[in-house]
């Protein structure tokens, strides 16, 4: 099961809506071994595509180093499907390289509702898991990401220039 703060889900959905019809992608980092996503990091989709996403290689290195320095790991790796359901495509499965991560998919194909689903992808095997959305204010990290997620006017999402 993936437990994730409501404010982080809201920020991910906002990111996916902002980049629609292109696919949006990113990470939610959390303390190593905690299985708790606390720090939302929207990533640039270097492919800038409606049907494909790829982290920019230099941003990828920077963010992974930063997580290493902070004793964090990628707890959630998310991306959006903008015209199809929130289920991993064969492409998603073949590229899934973080066996410890929750792969969160958001579908933005419907204009006023989102489909949000989470999967484990290990050795090519997809296992869906429940998503438990935790209301904000439970722990201080969650409150921090709430501030981050809810202040898009002051945050450079690195895709705002498009």
């Amino acid at each position: 099961m993936l437990s994730i703060d409501r404010s982080i889900i809201d920020a991910i959905v906002a990111h996916a809506r902002r980049d629609h019809p292109d696919e949006a992608c990113g990470v939610v980092a959390g303390p190593v071994g905690s299985d708790t996503p606390t720090r939302h990091i929207p990533m640039d989709n270097a492919a800038r595509s409606m049907t494909f996403y790829e982290f920019d290689s230099m941003e990828h290195l920077r963010v992974w180093r930063e997580m290493d320095d902070r004793d964090e790991e990628p707890v959630v790796i998310y991306h959006s499907h903008t015209a199809t359901e929130a289920y991993p495509s064969r492409t998603d499965v073949s590229f899934a390289g973080e066996p410890g991560a929750h792969y969160l998919l958001v579908s933005t194909r419907e204009p006023d509702s989102e489909e949000i689903r989470s999967f484990r992808i290990v050795d090519g095997v997809v296992t869906e898991e429940p998503v438990r959305i935790v209301e904000a204010g439970v722990d201080p990290h969650a409150v921090q990401s709430y501030m981050f997620g809810q202040s898009p006017a002051t945050v450079d999402y690195e895709c705002s220039g498009r």
């Binding site: 049907t51 990828h60 499907h81």
Partner: peptide, 17 residues
Amino acid sequence: VTILPAVAGGAFGFAAA
């Protein structure tokens, strides 16, 4: 030297990818 598997995917068909 650092090795990272690319984080990539999407709704794109497998054959095209």
